[in-house]
């Protein structure tokens, strides 16, 4: 997994790519959590993430909940078809902010 972060005002966009599994979740958290802790709104662009397992889904839930606690917003953008299928299997499409 590699990532890129761009900033525009109080919003950071995190572009993740590759396959997000148990082995990659710590890396994803290390990128996303400090931005939320700093009070940023975070757009999480998953257009180049082709695979995500339950560990990756946990990162999405944890990030979403952390953003709610901090009064910021986490928006998950451009989800690939394969990852959307997993989000829907977890019945999270109405819980997470998907665009």
């Amino acid at each position: 997994m590699t990532y890129k972060v761009t900033d525009e005002g109080d919003t950071s966009t995190v572009f993740l790519d590759g396959e997000i599994d148990m082995d990659k979740t710590e890396g994803a958290k290390e990128v996303i959590f400090p931005l939320i802790d700093a009070g940023k709104n975070v757009n999480l662009n998953l257009s180049n993430v082709q695979y995500m397992d339950s560990s990756g889904i946990s990162v999405l839930i944890e990030s979403h909940q952390k953003a709610l606690e901090k009064g910021t917003k986490l928006i998950i953008k451009d989800v690939s078809k394969s990852v959307l299928k997993v989000i829907m299997m977890a019945k999270l499409e109405q819980i997470l902010n998907l665009e």
Binding site: D53, S54, S55, I57, S58, V59, I61, E62, Q65, V86, M89, A90
Partner: peptide
């Protein structure tokens, strides 16, 4: 977070 692997 967690507890979804077995569900999947």
């Amino acid at each position: 977070p967690g507890g979804l692997g077995t569900f999947f």
